[in-house]
């Protein structure tokens, strides 16, 4: 019962609010909020105070209200929105392409042992080859334009999805497959009703890993050779010494990452209600 502990810890403030809000539900909510986000809030507050008071160099760590202002102007003027749109498009298209290729290919490879065996060493090699190290190669091949950027992200996102799917299919409990077989299930039925649903949770692990990688590679690619995008904006703002804007772009990236993960978690909850532990 964690919230009770926090309740006692936060007795002083909750007593003060008690006159205004005395419903136990609200107190529970506040207690939870403090337990979950208290430290994060303290971090931001510390930053704000330290920067305003001059304990931190405000040229490097501008007060958060300046960062917030830069973010607001960027969004209202549409400049940052453009960057977000470009970045999301790059990462989104490649992520979807990696999903579209990785999952079917993985489902196929995981089922046929000979194929999986033959392809595994080369996949392992490709996976271990840093996509960023290959970026120059992709630039040589595809030029500095959109194609090389998209391809480097694609390269990096494909492997987590592909390997997670192959692993998921291979790890399906052979006893469940035999059970289905004992009722006379055909190969396609077994695939559709046993292998596919059993692979969903491991595939989601790959998807979440891939989404993180996609954003990481997106920033790197945009920093190296782009004139638009959130990653470009981080670099560009730093060149022009617009430090609040730089932080605004960094926070925006963090937010995109959190949002992508959140979407995937919600999707996973919808699809795998059965695998969830009860709360």
């Amino acid at each position: 019962m964690t919230y009770q502990l926090t309740d006692t810890a936060e007795q002083a403030p909750s007593k003060r609010i008690a006159g205004i809000v005395n419903t136990p539900r609200l107190r529970l909510f506040l207690g939870n909020a403090v337990a979950d986000y208290g430290l994060l809030f303290a971090f931001f507050a510390g930053w704000q105070v330290a920067s305003s008071a001059g304990w931190l160099n405000p040229a490097v760590f501008p007060p958060l209200d300046h960062v917030a202002a830069a973010l607001w102007t960027g969004i209202v003027s549409g400049a940052l929105l453009d960057d977000i749109a470009v970045s999301l498009q790059r990462a989104g298209i490649t992520f979807l392409a990696a999903v579209g290729l990785g999952i079917p290919l993985g489902l196929f490879m995981g089922q046929i042992r000979a194929v999986e065996r033959a392809l595994d060493p080369i996949l392992q090699l490709f996976r271990q080859t840093s996509a960023l190290a290959l970026y120059p190669v992709f630039i040589l091949l595809l030029g500095l334009g959109e194609a090389s950027k998209v391809f480097v992200i694609f390269w990096a996102t494909l492997f987590p999805i592909l390997l997670a799917t192959i692993g998921g299919v291979k790890e399906v409990d052979a006893k469940l497959v035999e059970m289905a077989r004992s009722f006379g299930a055909s190969r396609t039925t077994i695939f559709r009703r046993v292998i596919l649903p059993a692979s969903v949770p491991p595939i989601f692990v790959g998807l979440r890993l891939s989404a993180t990688t996609a954003l990481l590679l997106l920033i790197a690619a945009e920093m190296i050779g782009a004139n638009k995008g959130v990653g470009f904006q981080v670099m560009n703002a730093q060149y022009n010494f617009q430090i609040p804007l730089m932080f605004a772009a960094i926070f925006l990236l963090a937010f995109l990452g959190l949002a992508a993960n959140r979407v995937l978690v919600l999707l996973q909850r919808r699809l795998c209600r059965w695998s969830l532990t009860e709360h």
Binding site: K175, L176, E178, M179, R181, S182, F183, G184, R193, V194, P197, A198, V200, C272, W274, S275
Partner: peptide, 17 residues
């Protein structure tokens, strides 16, 4: 295999989904 026979295994072998 045949429909006139059914197997009960040592483990329940239920599909968790």
């Amino acid at each position: 295999l045949g429909k006139e026979r059914a197997v009960i295994f040592q483990e329940p072998r239920l599909l968790p989904w």
